[in-house]
Deep mutational scan, measured.
Amino acid sequence: HNLTITQGKLFFHYNPKLCLSEIHKMEEVSGTKGRQERNDIALKTNGDQASCENELLKFSYIRTSFDKILLRWEPYWPPDFRDLLGFMLFYKEAPYQNVTEFDGQDACGSNSWTVVDIDPPLRSNDPKSQNHPGWLMRGLKPWTQYAIFVKTLVTFSDERRTYGAKSDIIYVQTDATNPSVPLDPISVSNSSSQIILKWKPPSDPNGNITHYLVFWERQAEDSELFELDYCLKGLKLPSRTWSPPFESEDSQKHNQSEYEDSAGECCSCPKTDSQILKELEESSFRKTFEDYLHNVVFVPRKTSSGTGAEDPRPSRKRRSLGDVGNVTVAVPTVAAFPNTSSTSVPTSPEEHRPFEKVVNKESLVISGLRHFTGYRIELQACNQDTPEERCSVAAYVSARTMPEAKADDIVGPVTHEIFENNVVHLMWQEPKEPNGLIVLYEVSYRRYGDEELHLCVSRKHFALERGCRLRGLSPGNYSVRIRATSLAGNGSWTEPTYFYVTDYLDVPSNIA
């Protein structure tokens, strides 16, 4: 807008934040220059609390790290170098490059900038070799853009010569660093050979998330399962459950009422301010606690030095998902009996873990797994792929695949051998790939016309006998059925096997 004052003059007093240069501009645009008398524009009460600059400061050096910015700028000295009290560095987070010096300023003089007072450097006698002032900004957020400017702080001049310097606002972004852990990993099994893994992005990506790394490792069953005799009275049979499938998407929606109208769909109840505040506090606490764990609990591995020492970490090797089922080394339970199943799973520490690289999504279907087997899954978020990966501390989750139908069934015939004193040795093959492992066998036998009897055969007993022995049988026709019990439950009964026990007292003698 054009402003013209045809008559009258300007009068400025007691404006401590208004620089004289701005008042002189007002004289020019209003056409009143030359009308004012000496005392109409006070030299001592206008701009006496402001830094009124008329020179431009330029930054000469900028260096960044993930949490620091090192700045240096060209030296500046007023005509009387004693008038320079120091520099004021202003900075704040700036997602967009549209910041002005006066953003967030209120009537009390406060604003949204963080201000650092910096002492002037030592003055050199040689004007050509003056030290460049600077400042190291610490405690910054990774991968965050900051708006920065600097200006001088000078003393009051009796001659009211307006001098000083100020830089333009520059924008500097800190470097990326390792992201925080992925949030809320959930693993479920939808079949006997697959596990579905879902997660949420890290709360602090500290860069642009480029991919996720998912490692999985087959877990050995508890050692007590191999040692305890679950045929003993009072000892509860062990059981394991597989990871249940995901709930429906509708039930997972946030901010939804727990109660549904019987007449149909209901609208979600909005969260109160107290609920939102509580969630923010919980989120802040979780982030602080995660940072504490990362800094205190997890110790970084030592990389190899120039002395030739090897990095103890196993090298990563990509495998196809079809090879995942046989990740671990199978060892027989008892070496003397080769027909026992290889369900003991000690994992070799030198073995390469299978892994998958996930790009542009937060889910993965891990296939080719062994049925009813526990897996430990390790999830890392990465925001750099080359020249070397920059990934987060791992988040861990466990899951067990679903049982395989008929995996616990005894394959092959049940054979028998009759000894003296009416002892019958029953023999059968253990299931080759049971659900988890076989903890015991149930032997059901009966003599024709009598009630059915049951015998429990422990895992250890089966390994020693290759089956079991029935003792003290009365003469007669017998039928026997056997079924295995694994961590997933009972298998199917075998087809009945028949044998006849004679009275050993009636056996004919070869003595003449």
Rank of each mutant, 00 (worst) to 15 (best):
T502I: 04
E388I: 15
A407H: 15
D311K: 06
S320D: 11
E281L: 09
A407V: 12
P244L: 07
L505M: 07
S315E: 12
R447L: 13
R483Q: 10
V480Q: 05
F285V: 04
S363Y: 10
S305L: 11
E224N: 09
G489T: 05
P314S: 15
R390H: 07
R483H: 11
G476S: 02
K271Y: 04
A405P: 03
I377T: 03
N435F: 01
V439Q: 12
R313L: 12
C456T: 01
N360L: 08
E265F: 13
S492V: 12
K460Q: 07
G449T: 15
P475S: 07
P431T: 03
E224G: 08
T373V: 15
L379Q: 02
I482D: 01
N422S: 11
R376V: 08
I438H: 02
H416V: 11
I377E: 00
P270M: 04
T401K: 00
L277D: 02
S363G: 11
S304V: 14
T340H: 03
T494E: 01
E351Q: 11
G306Y: 06
D273C: 02
G207L: 00
R319Q: 12
Y478M: 01
E258R: 14
P270I: 05
L235E: 02
T497L: 11
Y504M: 05
Q252F: 14
K236Q: 03
Q252G: 10
R301G: 03
S284H: 12
T494I: 09
L487A: 03
S342A: 13
V327A: 10
T307L: 07
R240A: 00
M402A: 12
L455Q: 08
I418Y: 15
F372Y: 09
S398C: 08
H352S: 08
G491F: 03
E433K: 14
P354G: 10
V423M: 06
E452T: 06
L369V: 09
N490R: 15
Y292N: 02
F419W: 15
T485S: 05
P413M: 11
P387Y: 05
E389T: 09
N326H: 12
S243T: 09
V297K: 02
R469P: 04
G436N: 05
R466V: 08
Y396Q: 07
D311L: 13
P434Y: 02
G491Q: 03
E282D: 01
R316M: 12
P354S: 06
V299W: 04
G308D: 09
Q275K: 04
H211P: 01
L379N: 03
T303C: 14
E310R: 14
S203F: 07
N326F: 13
S262D: 11
